[in-house]
Nucleic acid binder design. Structure first.
Lengths: 209, 209
DNA sequence: GCGAGGACATACTGCGGAGTATGTTCGCCC
DNA sequence: GGGCGAACATACTCCGCAGTATGTCCTCGC
């Protein structure tokens, strides 16, 4: 296979393909139930390819997890700073978060798996350390919501609620989207945006002043 | 060991102990990662005991799943019929649901696992059938929320929203409790009831008229 | 008190999956 | 044009786990 222009668009990161396949497998069958052969099969390849890019199964999972958070921070977290009231900013953050749940579902579902692994898993010391880092990333993302709830109480755009609890109920409602959402054939971005808007309208109603 | 009065309180269903241990293990490590030996270890027993009460690992999981739904229906679902407006009933249902998430967390967390197994799992025909039954039970429980949202639009106690979507956002917020909740040492039932009340107040706000 | 069966424990088998060691191919650079 | 390394494929090893076959104890009914 020649390095054509078309290939340059796809192959510069063959590693990405492996990562995406792993995310899909982990979401479908769970972490433990997924074999490295499963990931390879999804790519029409063999284990050799997977192990060439990732040292072990845990590290592969950690990369999926890390990618999931980076996407969330880039798409939703950035809206913490922005124009308007805290309620406005929270609306934009939630809307972007929901779209992430729908469009990068495979990655996002693994966030919950990772948290369980952290809470209960028996892992090596090295893995424990990287898991700690990943949890801090996640906590940092959640803090953006916490702060915005506090800001909303301060600027009067939202009720004065316990920011931590409010963050959890809100994130619960919108994280759950990744659980039940399943893309319909022929669905467009516009459809998803409308749906996201509708969800935000329902969910945020309880927090507004 | 003699069949004393104290033992009669515990042992009439030694099977229950196995079931509870399995729920705990499945929650901690996930379905696949849990070995039958893990379940036995938690009881200070061996596999023999587990296989004496349950034919196979899938059937053990199915029983955990079934129990989880039965608890929800008994504790929360029953409040669908009751006095007051639809909003009142929904409040009682949500409150009970949240308490279930906190107090039977191990069982409830497995509901999500089961749904994934249903959506993606490759199981035998026989297991597929029982999974279908379990999903119908779950759907039936969700329908109670759907109907109550519709009733709320009808009796004017709640906004006229898409009942299905409202059900999903509400259940998302309150199901998520099982994900983050972790009982504090010395916590009493009263603490949990207060917390549940607070969550309901926050979450239901968006749906009320 | 004795036979039977429930409630386990013990000791195996067989397979699937993580990880490894070693080929193999192809493009690139000198 | 040749050698070198990236990007895989192939062919193993070894261990852990589901399931089974069989043994053991204790209790209850008669």
């Amino acid at each position: 296979m020649q390095p054509t222009a078309a290939n340059d668009l796809v192959s510069p990161d063959r590693r990405e393909e492996v990562l995406a396949a792993a995310a899909e497998c982990f979401m479908r069958r769970g972490y433990e139930a997924t074999s490295m052969d499963d990931v390879a099969d999804m790519l029409g390849a063999t284990k050799g390819r997977v192990y060439h890019h990732f040292r072990s199964k845990p590290e592969l999972f950690f990369e999926v997890f890390r990618r999931a958070i980076f996407i969330l921070i880039r798409e939703a977290g950035v809206h913490e700073t922005g124009p308007g009231t805290a309620a406005d900013r929270l609306r934009r953050m939630s809307r972007a978060h929901i779209l992430c749940m729908m469009e990068t579902q495979a990655f996002q579902r693994n966030l919950t798996l990772g948290v369980d692994l952290y809470r209960f898993g028996e892992t090596s010391e090295e893995h424990k350390a990287t898991l700690e880092d990943l949890m801090n990333l996640r906590r940092g993302y959640e803090d953006a919501f916490r702060r915005t709830f506090a800001a909303g109480a301060a600027d009067g755009s939202m009720k004065a609620l316990d920011p931590s609890l409010a963050m959890r109920t809100l994130l619960g409602a919108i994280n759950w989207v990744a659980v039940w959402y399943s893309p319909r054939p022929g669905e467009t971005r516009a459809h998803r945006e409308t749906l996201a808007e509708e969800i935000v309208a329902q969910v945020l109603g309880g927090y507004l002043a």
